[in-house]
Design a protein around this nucleic acid. Structure first.
Lengths: 131, 131
DNA sequence: GATATTAAAGACTCCTGATATCTGTAATTA
DNA sequence: TAATTACAGATATCAGGAGTCTTTAATATC
């Protein structure tokens, strides 16, 4: 099991948008070329991010995408949930109520999610810019 | 993304074997009926667990499977690694060296793994038995 | 208002891996 | 020897990931 490629693309795209000077939106074509993806495929990912409220889209000429929320608010977990959906890593289909094994797995999952929620994109963006 | 059903079956089987009195092995048929699986399918899962050194198999009449390691040593992570393989949840295929995003994801994964390594099957087995 | 530009949405294909069963073979013990 | 079991392999099915193409809707600029 592993996170999908789409999540990887989404994270990189978000970082890139954050490093964009001014409020001018960036077109899908430009974003797609950077990661060597087809614009239509990346569009699907961007649409998910937009529906989650992480970015804003403006159609038409000179349109594109830009960060919508205050940059300081967006965490890794926000992006992951937007793409993967917030499903749980483990469901015990055998015992339908209060499986002890499921409890342990859920607890471990929470530990990971907590870490991902505390990490903000803006910090990584600044770090990347410094290089 | 989620853990496979096989991991779920493996965990439940391990707990069951731990609660087995004495050192007598348990046959596949009995283990399979309990989880309503075909014996051949469960055999594959058991083989993985055996190759990982978590259980031992004795063929022949009155044969079956039993816990091999000292019970106190086996953690959730041991079982998961035996079934899922030791893969990482996130690989950045874009930047091949030192991706900042990958670093964050790996750190979060470590948090989860640490929790799963600290949880021992024997504790859950005892808890289940108390009920 | 017409046109060019861009995002949005849906249908579609391809492929991998998970899930699961059945059959047959080899090994071991009663 | 006969019964029981592990073990390997082939097969079928199904879901989801990955990605492309086409059409539709919205916006800005001339």
């Amino acid at each position: 099991m592993r996170y999908s490629n789409a999540t990887n693309y989404a994270l990189h795209t978000m970082i890139h948008l954050m490093l964009q000077p001014g409020g001018s939106p960036v077109g899908v074509k430009e974003l797609a070329e950077m990661q060597k993806l087809s614009p239509t495929y990346l569009s699907k990912i961007l649409t998910k991010l937009a529906k989650a409220g992480l970015i804003e889209s403006t159609p038409g000429a000179k349109g594109g995408y830009k960060i919508s929320r205050t940059k300081q608010e967006i965490s890794f977990l926000d992006v992951i949930n937007a793409i993967e959906g917030d499903t749980s890593l483990f469901d015990c289909s055998i015992h339908h109520e209060g499986c002890l094994i499921e409890n342990v797995m859920r607890q471990a999952e929470e530990n990971m999610k907590a870490e991902l929620e505390s990490k903000l994109l803006i910090d990584i963006a600044k770090e990347a810019q410094a290089k």
